[in-house]
């Protein structure tokens, strides 16, 4: 990978100090046991089938004032900022494209991941996430409304504690709506990590890591992300990685569909709150303008009187 020499990059062969801690040498089984306690409750107190969004869904639109539309989604320790900019002509393109394009860029903060520091240059995972995000968003946006133009969607992952792709998709959906980009439907997304017969809905980073690590015995393991357009009953993107049989994939898909469905009212609430806020803001601005006008008018009257008297 090309290094950016203007930055301080650190020695190339440095390794995280965590390699020398006790946690590092834990076996697969030990790590797995840590994820769940005896009662089947996860480390952060959730049940297996409980998404973080259900206990607290912190999201808001209109986060970045400079952007046309923006959103912030927080799933406990996964924090994502998204901003959407006005359509602009597609750069370096000679052919006319009938459909508008969506340009997505996902970026991890250098300090966002628990296992290692992220480099400044985009790495393979960031590129893969960008492509996945674009694929998920494309069916939801009315792209024929802005031919030969592109809408830029930028995602910055401040902290990654698992399910960052679905958090990014949810945030991007909110931001696109906030930017008043014409869309067919609300887009929602959810992730599931499968280890053996256990299904971790909305997994944390530790759960995700274990689901994508190779177990000692050939059991089902994998990570699935699904994004849906709920009103149209369509799946806009589905990504699976790992090793799973047909039954397990089908089960996970059903769980994911339900979870995505559950997110819709939450997203709607955020959007309505945003619209109400905009209305309130406009009203306040209008009132202020009226007051100013009134004050000016009364000043004018005073001066007129003074002039007439003089």
């Amino acid at each position: 990978m090309p290094l950016d020499y203007r930055r301080f990059n650190g020695p190339e062969d440095s390794i995280p100090y965590k390699r020398f801690t006790k946690d590092f040498v834990k076996s697969y089984d030990e790590l797995f046991k840590e994820l769940l306690d005896d009662k089947g409750v996860r480390k952060d107190g959730r049940a297996l089938s409980e998404a973080r969004s259900m206990c607290m869904f912190f999201a808001r639109a209109d986060m970045v004032s400079q952007a046309k539309g923006s959103a912030y989604v927080e799933l406990r320790k996964t924090k994502v900022v998204c901003s959407v900019f006005d359509p602009r002509e597609i750069p370096h393109q000679n052919e006319f494209s009938e459909l508008g394009q969506i340009f997505c860029e996902v970026k991890f903060a250098p300090f966002s991941c628990p296992r290692r520091r992220r480099p400044h240059a985009p790495d393979a995972e960031e590129k893969a996430l960008s492509v996945a995000l674009r694929k998920a968003l494309e069916p939801s946006v009315c792209r024929h409304m802005f031919p030969n133009y592109q809408v830029d969607v930028f995602i910055y992952i401040l902290e990654n504690d698992g399910a960052c792709l679905s958090a990014a998709i949810n945030a991007a959906g909110l931001a696109l709506a906030d930017a008043a980009v014409p869309m067919y439907d609300i887009i929602t997304s959810c992730t599931v990590a499968v280890i053996g017969d256990k299904m971790f809905v909305d997994p944390t980073e530790a759960e995700e890591y274990l689901a994508t690590t190779n177990p000692d015995t050939p059991i089902n393991h994998g990570l699935l992300t699904l994004s849906t357009l709920s009103e149209l009953k369509q799946i806009s993107d589905f990504i699976q990685i790992g090793s799973m049989d047909v039954v397990s994939v089908t089960n996970a898909m059903e769980v994911l569909e339900k979870e995505c469905e559950k997110l819709v009212p939450l997203v709607q609430k955020v959007l309505v709150a945003n619209v109400l806020k905009c209305f309130a803001q406009r009203k306040r601005l209008e009132e202020e303008a009226n007051e100013r006008e009134k004050a000016l008018n009364s000043k004018m009257e005073e001066w007129k009187k003074l002039l007439n008297a003089g």
Partner: peptide, 9 residues
């Protein structure tokens, strides 16, 4: 048994 290792759209 055959298993899915990746699914993508």
């Amino acid at each position: 048994e055959s298993k899915f290792t990746t699914i993508e759209m």
